[in-house]
Deep mutational scan, measured.
Amino acid sequence: MTTFKLIINGKTLKGEITIEAVDAAEKEKIFKQYANDNGIDGEWTYDDATKTFTVTE
C-alpha cells in the first residue's frame, strides 16, 4: 500500500486528506468522488514524486 494525499483548494472547502491505496488510479477515483460529493469542481493535478493530488477551484 502507498500513502496518497489530496490537497483541496476550493472556494468553500480547503484542507488535506491522506489515505492509503494500492495505486494512484484507485486513489484518483476515490478522491474525485469525494470532491464531487462535496461540490468541488476544479482543475486536478498529480505529483508522482510526492504522491499528491491537488484540486483547485
Rank of each mutant, 00 (worst) to 15 (best):
K11M: 12
N9K: 08
E57D: 08
M1I: 11
K14E: 09
W44E: 00
T50Y: 03
E20C: 14
I17V: 08
I7K: 03
N36W: 14
G15E: 12
K29L: 11
L6I: 15
T54E: 03
E20G: 06
F31V: 12
I7R: 03
T50H: 03
K11G: 08
K32S: 05
Y34T: 01
G42A: 06
Q33R: 09
E20Q: 11
E28H: 10
E28C: 15
T54D: 01
E28K: 04
K29A: 11
E26K: 05
D48H: 06
D41L: 13
D48F: 06
T54I: 07
T2K: 05
T2M: 12
G15V: 15
T18R: 09
K29G: 06
A25L: 10
D41A: 10
Y46F: 04
T3H: 06
I30L: 10
T2C: 15
A49W: 05
T45Y: 08
N36T: 11
L6E: 02
E28T: 05
G10V: 11
N9A: 07
I7E: 01
D41Y: 14
G10Q: 03
K32A: 09
E57C: 15
K32Q: 10
T12Q: 07
Q33Y: 04
I30Y: 10
E43V: 12
D23F: 08
N36Y: 14
V55F: 12
W44V: 04
V55I: 10
A21K: 04
E28F: 15
L13H: 10
W44K: 00
Q33F: 07
T54A: 03
E43K: 09
A25R: 07
Y34G: 00
D37F: 06
K29Q: 09
T2Y: 15
E26W: 12
I8R: 00
Y46Q: 00
I7H: 02
E26L: 09
Y34F: 13
N36V: 12
D47Q: 01
T18C: 14
A24I: 13
K27I: 15
T12E: 10
N38V: 11
F31C: 10
T45F: 08
I40T: 03
D41N: 12
K14V: 13
N38W: 14
I30C: 13
I19H: 02
T56D: 04
N9Q: 08
E26M: 09
E57T: 13
A21I: 14
A21F: 14
G10W: 13
F53C: 13
T2E: 06
E57Q: 10
K32H: 06
K14S: 09
I30K: 05
V22G: 07
E16P: 06
F53V: 04
K11L: 13
K14D: 09
A25K: 07
A35I: 13
T54R: 05
T45H: 08
K5L: 10
E20F: 13
N36A: 14
I19D: 01
L6V: 13
F53T: 09
V22N: 10
T18W: 14
I8T: 00
Y46G: 00
D23M: 07
A35P: 01
G39K: 04
I17D: 00
I19F: 15
I30H: 05
M1T: 11
N9Y: 13
G15Y: 15
I8G: 00
G42I: 09
G42D: 02
T50N: 05
N9T: 07
F53Q: 00
K5Y: 15
Q33L: 06
A24V: 13
D47F: 03
F53R: 00
D37C: 14
E43C: 13
